[in-house]
Design a protein around this nucleic acid. Structure first.
Length: 550
RNA sequence: GUUUCGGUAGCUCAGUAGGAUAGAGCAAUGGCCUUCUAAGCCAUCGGUCGGGGGUUCGAAUCCCUCCCGGAAUGCCA
């Protein structure tokens, strides 16, 4: 029996006792949680307070009745106390708690796995930046959050596919081609005007230079628009893929918007919507009746000039995703798209899907500070802090950790000077350092002849407060995974990692691991190995490395 | 105006299917390296949880109202 099973066991036990006492109510959940302070036991429940009204007795009396029935039976429990207004606090025997060390050393990086997602198949779309420039810091947040969430969901037992929607059709791509064309002409000192909504980043100039290198002045004499379009999309998409890869983010599917047109799926979807009376014509445009599905108003899907709006191919795209058989579609979008959600959900209902299948996670904007003042990004000037700059300066780890630390829908400030500084002001080093310290101890243990191939499974000397705190922190890992996965909250995992590292550092400072006492040393090495496994696994879920030396 | 996300320590942020003295990191102050990495540990300082009402044994958390900031409110994407 492990600690999770014990918790379930206790809950079950309490439930039976409540039935015996004649209080039980289906509607009240029995919860057993880890209290904040150790002085309130290893686990605690507030059932007595919840049942006060039903039983019409004071919480403490109920607690007393419950405790009297529990007491005699469970041999894993050290003691039970009633505290405060009526909390029942359970203290678990330390010999039972240390079992988790054995479990971890056997399961290794499978420790903390769940099968929560049985039968589920999630599609998670994130970043989906237009291939019209380099990825900037806002995209980095999306990439870090999305990738971490996917890894956590996989760990929790969900089948997950990561998808990037490539907007390689439509207006922005025309602007890209026109921008490249203008930059290309500039290279020959010819008159050139950048389009009003053009892309002014220096990577566009680089692209033009590349084209000049390959084809010289060929496109001065003939129309190169189509070439510029294709070449621009291809090369910028490659840059984008490279940057994401260097950031530790891989996608399973790169879905091309253009492919929707190539397969005629956009027209088919539009025809379907029209044929099924979901549209009407008004002032020369075709409108979709999304207001019938709790959107605030109807939306144009075919403009007066007969071209589509952004949502039109996106409906076809989501229809396509539905057809691919996922049980859940998660879109991770920037907070500025929140108004877009109702129309998308409406459209999903219209094409025969269930709008609950789509779940949108919004990421609020990142405010970037440099020298204490806000750095405004501007498409017009091409001024932006790119992922590439950041990764080149400090590597992916600090940035990924930093973004993973924040809950998705919080507005956040990023102090660039601080992010780039490689000091302890950056929390990722604190965690990585814990891992490196363990590795360092192991190196010395090997020198002194300790065996690190197998670890002891008997623990009799692990009794100090710091030790047990570290052990019980380890046993919380599976729950941390579960919470992070089901609440779509990678930051709950980094909170856990941080507190695990903290427990370790505190333990490390208090107690020497390698001593003359062989048994004691072996037990501690087993504990450290378990800690190392969990640290490394947890860090891998946020895409951060676990260095052996620092 | 409406929708939406925020307002918690000097700063950056946790904590919200109501629970025990509201937490962490950084910053500040004071200690700890002849012993496994001081990117560490320990301690201190620091908060009318934006304001005001309400709901109840109990509210940062739920309800109402007001104030302040971001975003959206396109036949842009």
């Amino acid at each position: 029996m492990n600690i999770q099973e014990l918790v379930l066991d206790i809950k079950d036990h309490i439930k039976n006792i409540l039935k015996d006492l004649g209080y039980f109510d289906e509607n009240i959940n029995i919860t057993l949680e880890v209290p904040k302070g150790k002085s309130n036991g290893d686990y605690s429940t507030n059932v007595a307070m919840q049942y006060a009204r039903i039983a019409r007795k004071s919480p403490r009396v109920i607690a007393d009745e419950i405790v009297n029935k529990v007491k005699s039976e469970d041999h894993f429990i050290e003691k039970i106390e009633i505290a405060g207004p009526g909390f029942i606090n359970f203290y678990i025997k330390s010999s039972f708690i240390t079992n988790v060390i054995k479990d971890i050393n056997i399961l290794k990086d499978n420790f903390g796995n769940h099968d929560l997602g049985q039968g589920e198949f999630y599609n998670i779309e994130f970043v989906s930046a237009n291939p019209t420039g380099l990825l900037h810091i806002g995209h980095a947040r999306g990439a870090a959050a999305g990738d971490s969430l996917c890894r956590i969901l996989s760990k929790a037992g969900y089948k997950v596919e990561k998808e990037f929607y490539v907007n390689d059709a439509g207006n922005q791509i025309k602007n890209l081609a026109a921008s490249i064309q203008a930059r290309y002409r500039e290279l020959f000192d010819l008159e050139a005007t950048m389009p009003e909504d053009g892309y002014f980043g220096k990577e566009i100039i680089e692209t033009a230079k590349d084209i000049k290198k390959l084809h010289n002045d060929k496109f001065i004499h003939e129309d190169g628009f189509e070439f510029f379009r294709q070449y621009g999309v291809d090369s910028l998409l490659n840059e984008l893929k490279k940057d994401l890869k260097d950031f530790g983010v891989d996608f399973d599917v790169w879905f091309s918007e253009k492919s929707l047109y190539d397969q005629d799926l956009v027209n088919k979807t539009v025809k379907y919507l029209i044929d099924n009376d979901y549209t009407y014509e008004f002032e020369g445009a075709v409108w979709l009746k999304t207001s019938e599905y709790s959107d605030e108003k109807d939306r144009v899907i075919i403009k007066t000039d007969k071209t589509f709006t952004y949502v039109t191919p996106d409906i076809a795209y989501h229809k396509n995703k539905l057809d691919r058989g996922y049980t859940k579609l998660i879109d991770i979008l920037g907070g500025d798209h929140h108004g877009y959600i109702p129309r998308l959900k409406a459209a999903i209902e219209m094409v025969g899907g269930n709008s609950d299948t789509l779940e949108v996670e919004l990421l609020q904007m990142v405010k970037v500070l440099q020298d204490g003042i806000e750095v405004k990004m501007s498409k017009r000037s091409g001024k932006a802090i790119t992922i590439r700059d950041l990764v080149d300066e400090v590597g992916p780890d600090p940035i990924r950790y930093f973004f993973a630390m924040r809950s998705l829908n919080t507005h956040m400030d990023l102090d660039l000077d601080l992010a780039i500084r490689q000091t302890n002001e950056n929390p990722v080093y604190y965690v990585q350092y814990a891992h490196a310290r363990i590795c360092s101890i192991f190196r010395q243990a090997v020198e002194k002849g300790f065996n690190l191939d197998t670890f002891t499974t008997e623990f009799s000397t692990l009794t100090s407060e710091k030790t047990l705190e570290l052990v019980s922190k380890l046993s919380e890992y599976p729950n941390a995974i579960k919470v992070a996965a089901t609440q779509r909250a990678p930051h709950k995992l980094t909170n856990y990692i941080n507190s695990l590292a903290s427990s370790f550092h505190s333990f490390y400072n208090d107690e020497h691991v390698i001593t003359e006492n062989a048994q004691n040393t072996n037990e501690r090495l087993a504990l450290l190995n378990a800690t190392k496994i969990v640290l490394k696994d947890a860090l891998s879920l946020v895409g951060v490395s676990a260095p052996e030396k620092m």
